[in-house]
Computed example of a mutant assay.
Amino acid sequence: MVAKELMTSHVIKIDANATIGQAVELLREHTISGLPVTDAQGRLIGVITGGDVLRAIQQKAQKIYHSLFGPTQVVIDENVWKEDSNRLLNLPVEKMMSRSPFTVQPQTPVGEIADLMIRQNIRRVFVLEHDKLVGIITRNDIVRWLVRHVG
């Protein structure tokens, strides 16, 4: 089996100039954990995940102070948090996205894709054909395929 036989071809994506808030809404609405980020020409330029957003929120929600006893975490004032979160949600996606998404070709064997996911500890790969985004394969896709075809 190869990528084009396993991939999801209807890919939910987001433009690099969209806001983090819009990305969060798409992630929530479609119950997905990551979105490919495209430029104005529709080329894949990055990926934004729920983990990226969660890390940014955690960094904004807490300040680390070093004392004589080592680091301690202090939650910041709620009003400051509201201001920070509004600023964060209005940032463009390209400010928070990972810029090196993992990609494969439509003819890449599924075994190679599974190996890539394990070696790189990633949850999704994007399928490109002539630099155009044509699909996505997630860890869950691979697991479902294995369950159906093994044993």
Rank of each mutant, 00 (worst) to 15 (best):
L133E: 02
E129H: 11
D39A: 09
Q41F: 14
P92V: 11
P106F: 06
R124C: 01
I122H: 01
Q73M: 10
L35G: 03
Q107G: 12
F126M: 04
P101H: 10
L89Y: 15
I136D: 05
H10F: 12
F69S: 13
E94F: 12
T72D: 14
R148G: 11
S67C: 13
N121K: 06
T31C: 00
I76H: 01
I142Q: 08
L35E: 00
H10V: 13
I12H: 04
V125C: 11
V93S: 00
H130N: 07
A56P: 02
I64Y: 15
A56M: 04
L91Y: 13
V104I: 14
G34T: 03
D15H: 06
D77W: 05
Q22T: 02
A61Q: 00
D15L: 07
V143F: 15
L133V: 00
F102P: 01
A23P: 03
H10S: 15
S9V: 09
V80C: 12
Q62G: 13
P101D: 07
Q22K: 02
E25V: 15
V134E: 00
H66P: 14
V93E: 00
I122S: 05
I64V: 15
S98M: 07
N90L: 15
G135W: 05
T31V: 08
N86E: 12
L88S: 14
A56F: 04
V37F: 08
Q41A: 10
Q73A: 11
V24S: 09
V74T: 08
G151H: 06
S98F: 03
L91H: 06
K13P: 14
I45Y: 08
D52I: 07
K13M: 13
I20N: 01
R139F: 07
V53C: 04
G135E: 00
S9K: 10
Q59H: 08
V104H: 03
R43M: 10
V104R: 07
V150G: 14
L89I: 08
R55L: 03
V47E: 11
V127Y: 02
D39T: 09
E78H: 08
